[in-house]
Amino acid sequence: KILMCPEHETERINMYCELCRRPVCHLCKLGGNHANHRVTTMSSA
């Protein structure tokens, strides 16, 4: 099953924010609420 980002509906979730303990997409990481947070790949989470 492909998970889609709730904030960016057209983007797949492919990362996990370690600080917030939630999955995020690349747009969340690049310029969103998680820009300065440490993220890992979903396969490592």
Score class of each variant (00 low, 15 high):
residue 37 H to M: 03
residue 40 T to F: 03
residue 20 C to T: 02
residue 16 Y to A: 04
residue 10 T to M: 10
residue 44 S to G: 14
residue 12 R to L: 11
residue 15 M to P: 03
residue 42 M to Q: 14
residue 9 E to Y: 09
residue 38 R to V: 13
residue 36 N to A: 13
residue 32 G to K: 07
residue 41 T to D: 11
residue 28 C to D: 15
residue 22 R to D: 05
residue 23 P to Y: 09
residue 2 I to Y: 02
residue 7 E to S: 08
residue 16 Y to E: 05
residue 9 E to L: 10
residue 6 P to F: 05
residue 28 C to L: 00
residue 9 E to H: 09
residue 30 L to V: 13
residue 30 L to A: 15
residue 26 H to G: 14
residue 29 K to M: 10
residue 36 N to W: 03
residue 2 I to H: 07
residue 22 R to E: 13
residue 5 C to A: 00
residue 24 V to P: 02
residue 18 E to W: 05
residue 36 N to F: 11
residue 8 H to E: 01
residue 33 N to S: 13
residue 33 N to K: 12
residue 9 E to C: 09
residue 16 Y to C: 13
residue 14 N to F: 15
residue 41 T to S: 10
residue 14 N to K: 13
residue 36 N to T: 11
residue 28 C to M: 01
residue 23 P to D: 13
residue 27 L to I: 10
residue 44 S to L: 06
residue 1 K to Q: 04
residue 16 Y to D: 08
residue 20 C to A: 01
residue 25 C to R: 01
residue 25 C to T: 01
residue 18 E to P: 04
residue 35 A to P: 06
residue 25 C to M: 01
residue 28 C to G: 01
residue 38 R to Q: 13
residue 1 K to V: 04
residue 41 T to G: 12
residue 36 N to M: 08
residue 1 K to A: 04
residue 1 K to T: 06
residue 32 G to T: 09
residue 17 C to V: 00
residue 36 N to Y: 06
residue 32 G to V: 06
residue 38 R to K: 11
residue 43 S to A: 12
residue 30 L to R: 14
residue 38 R to P: 11
residue 25 C to Y: 00
residue 39 V to C: 09
residue 30 L to I: 10
residue 43 S to K: 07
residue 44 S to T: 11
residue 23 P to S: 09
residue 18 E to K: 06
residue 7 E to K: 08
residue 45 A to R: 08
residue 17 C to T: 01
residue 24 V to G: 09
residue 42 M to I: 04
residue 26 H to R: 10
residue 6 P to R: 07
residue 9 E to D: 12
residue 8 H to A: 00
residue 42 M to V: 12
residue 2 I to E: 10
residue 11 E to A: 03
residue 43 S to Y: 02
residue 30 L to D: 15
residue 4 M to W: 05
residue 26 H to K: 03
residue 30 L to F: 05
residue 2 I to K: 05
residue 39 V to T: 14
residue 35 A to V: 11
residue 11 E to K: 04
residue 12 R to G: 10
residue 27 L to V: 10
residue 4 M to V: 09
residue 38 R to C: 13
residue 43 S to V: 09
residue 20 C to E: 02
residue 17 C to G: 01
residue 6 P to H: 08
residue 32 G to E: 15
residue 34 H to Q: 03
residue 4 M to Y: 13
residue 34 H to D: 03
residue 2 I to V: 06
residue 27 L to D: 05
residue 23 P to W: 05
residue 5 C to R: 00
residue 22 R to W: 03
residue 20 C to L: 01
residue 34 H to Y: 02
residue 24 V to D: 02
residue 19 L to V: 13
residue 43 S to R: 09
residue 8 H to N: 00
residue 16 Y to V: 02
residue 19 L to W: 08
residue 24 V to F: 15
residue 27 L to G: 07
residue 36 N to G: 09
residue 30 L to H: 09
residue 3 L to C: 10
residue 9 E to F: 03
residue 39 V to A: 14
residue 15 M to L: 02
residue 37 H to I: 02
residue 40 T to A: 11
residue 44 S to F: 04
residue 19 L to P: 13
residue 20 C to K: 02
residue 21 R to H: 07
residue 16 Y to T: 15
residue 10 T to Y: 06
residue 44 S to W: 04
residue 1 K to D: 07
residue 9 E to T: 14
residue 19 L to Q: 12
residue 31 G to D: 08
residue 15 M to E: 11
residue 39 V to P: 12
residue 7 E to V: 11
residue 3 L to K: 12
residue 4 M to Q: 06
residue 6 P to Q: 10
residue 14 N to M: 14
residue 13 I to L: 13
residue 7 E to C: 05
residue 21 R to Y: 13
residue 26 H to P: 13
residue 2 I to R: 04
residue 21 R to S: 12
residue 41 T to I: 06
residue 37 H to Q: 07
residue 4 M to E: 06
residue 41 T to A: 08
residue 24 V to E: 04
residue 32 G to W: 04
residue 5 C to Y: 00
residue 8 H to L: 00
residue 24 V to S: 02
residue 25 C to A: 01
residue 24 V to T: 06
residue 40 T to N: 15
residue 25 C to E: 02
residue 7 E to F: 07
residue 1 K to L: 03
residue 28 C to E: 04
residue 33 N to A: 14
residue 21 R to I: 02
residue 44 S to H: 07
residue 17 C to Q: 00
residue 25 C to N: 02
residue 13 I to G: 15
residue 20 C to H: 01
residue 3 L to N: 11
residue 25 C to Q: 02
residue 37 H to A: 11
residue 43 S to Q: 13
residue 38 R to H: 14
residue 19 L to N: 15
residue 35 A to R: 07
residue 22 R to S: 14
residue 15 M to R: 03
residue 21 R to T: 09
residue 35 A to M: 08
residue 40 T to K: 08
residue 30 L to P: 12
residue 29 K to H: 09
residue 19 L to D: 13
residue 4 M to D: 05
residue 19 L to M: 12
residue 32 G to S: 10
residue 12 R to K: 03
residue 31 G to R: 10
residue 43 S to W: 03
